[in-house]
Design a binder for these strands. Structure first.
Length: 428
RNA sequence: GGAGGCGUCGCCUAGUCCGGUUUAUGGCGCCCGCCUGCUAAGCGGGUUGAGGAUAAAACCUCUCGCGGGUUCAAAUCCCGCCGCCUCCGCCA
């Protein structure tokens, strides 16, 4: 939810922000009208209620004994009570409409974010050099089969398309990536977490995933629960309804959870391999901090993501995502895209967003300032490592002519010192 | 799944049976001030959150787990839900 005060004080700025995302400002006008109606309804209710309280006190002052004065007062308050009830209902309706209107406005994009849609990103930097092969490179599907690491056929047999089994060294690779990510996070001062991947509607709505993105979310039949697409959902709701001591900020969490995505809008896209799947595991960084610090923290999250990419010895670039391609709750987003040899292009491996106070307003997380007052806090998230895409990038980048794959030095301790993944003799 | 108990403004707690001058009691903690070589003690005051109104205040409304209901009036009575604890059953 955007700051209602900003909406009231500077609606033109909110309209401009909508335009930058390529959205109409109709929702802004609707929210403004709803705000005016809401305030009027509140005024009406409070006037009635105040009168009712005053009369109630008079009745109480007269004591239990019956009397003409008391009877007259009772008659008056009786009709007043109906009016109070009506005014209260009107207020509740006005508040609900206002809330819905405000909730439908996405977080205004940062001034620095590039304008435009998906194709209008800006490349901030490119790291490393493009891997060159003096043989015909294989893609991760073939490598995964040769190494006994990925079983896509049986994934489809058991669960359907976009599912897979990680087998043998593939399973080891997942745990190695997770452990390396968790160790890095712990050394950077993060609290390690294992987060639930089923959440209530409040958490889903609060993180902005029930709006335009609702089609991509799995819901549990017959229960009020959703499967998360990222542990960001659980972590944003972790401190909901709480007031955090600002002195304790930043609160940095590294959360592991399975992630589930319907991929509803991407039929036919990335159908080969395990690039775009319905389920994967992920270590996600999630930070609560002050609004003022959030911009610097965003850069730190990006730096930690780059550190992880560097350890995997990947060729990648960092992009500044354009306003129209930001999620509902993000004010600015950076993606790290790794070079995928078989596709001949850079593909997203990690993504970090500054959600400012958009999620905390929805989930009612606030901060206690040093002077004792209460103010908004910001949330940020960033992928440290998922478990499917880094495996793809690793296999394809470090493959050799015989199908073996060199293990980057930083990852070796997590694979028992293994330096090269060799093809298995027979593939089951 | 069954039975019982509990949920009050940071923490603890009074109030709930028997509805009303309740702007929710008191203690701890915390903040400000007084006193004091310093600290402690003592004394005085403040201390839930949200919203409305205002230039800013004074002020007003809501908030006793959540949501309904009864009533002129609900922390208090009634119904539903949620959470926590204890015991039992069942299954890892």
């Amino acid at each position: 939810m955007i700051d209602p005060r900003l909406l009231r004080d500077d609606p033109d700025r909110v309209r401009a922000a909508q335009a930058k995302r390529g959205l109409s400002s109709d929702v802004v006008d609707r929210a403004l009208a709803a705000d005016a109606a809401r305030r009027e309804a509140i005024g009406l209710f409070e006037a009635r209620r105040g009168e009712q309280k005053k009369l109630g006190k008079e009745i109480a002052g007269l004591g239990k004994a019956q009397g003409e004065e008391r009877t007259a007062l009772l008659a008056r308050t009786k009709t007043l009570a109906t009016e109070v009830k009506e005014a209260e209902a009107a207020q509740a309706a006005a508040e609900a409409e206002w809330r819905e209107a405000v909730l439908s406005i996405p977080n205004p994009a940062a001034d620095e974010a590039p304008a435009g849609g998906e194709e209008n990103f800006v490349v901030l930097e490119t790291v490393g050099t493009r891997p060159e092969f003096d043989f015909e490179p294989r893609d991760h599907v073939e490598l995964g089969r040769m190494l006994g690491a990925i079983d896509i056929e049986r994934g489809a047999k058991v669960s359907g398309s976009r599912f897979y089994f990680l087998t043998g060294i593939g399973a080891q690779l997942e745990f190695a990536l997770v452990n390396m990510a968790m160790d890095q996070a712990r050394n950077a001062g993060f609290t390690q977490m294992v987060a639930p991947s089923l959440v209530k509607p409040r958490a889903m709505e609060g993180t902005g995933f029930l709006g335009q993105a609702a089609d991509d979310v799995y819901r549990i039949e017959g229960q009020d629960l959703y499967l998360v697409g990222t542990s960001e959902v659980a972590m944003a709701a972790y401190h909901s309804d709480e007031i955090l001591d600002v002195a304790s900020l930043p609160l940095r969490y590294a959360a592991f959870s399975p992630c589930f995505r319907k991929e509803a809008g991407s039929h036919g896209k990335d159908t080969r391999g395990i690039f775009r799947v319905h389920w994967f595991d992920k270590v996600e960084m999630f930070v609560y901090t002050t609004l003022e610090e959030s911009y610097a923290e965003h850069q730190r999250l990006l730096a930690w993501e780059k550190e992880f990419m560097d350890k995997l010895e990947l060729h990648y670039r960092v992009i500044d995502v354009a306003a129209g391609d930001l999620g509902t709750s993000a004010q600015r987003k950076f993606d790290c895209e790794a070079w995928i040899a078989s596709q001949g292009r850079f593909r997203e491996l990690t993504s970090t967003s500054n959600c400012t106070d958009f999620q905390t307003r929805r989930l009612d997380t606030r901060g206690r300032l040093a002077d004792g007052s209460v103010g908004p806090v910001a949330t940020l998230n960033g992928t440290l490592s998922s478990t499917n895409r880094p495996i793809i990038a690793l296999l394809e980048t470090h493959q050799r002519a015989d199908g073996s794959v060199r293990v980057p030095a930083a990852l070796r301790p997590y694979l028992g010192g293994l330096e090269v993944i060799e093809p298995v003799a027979t593939v089951a």
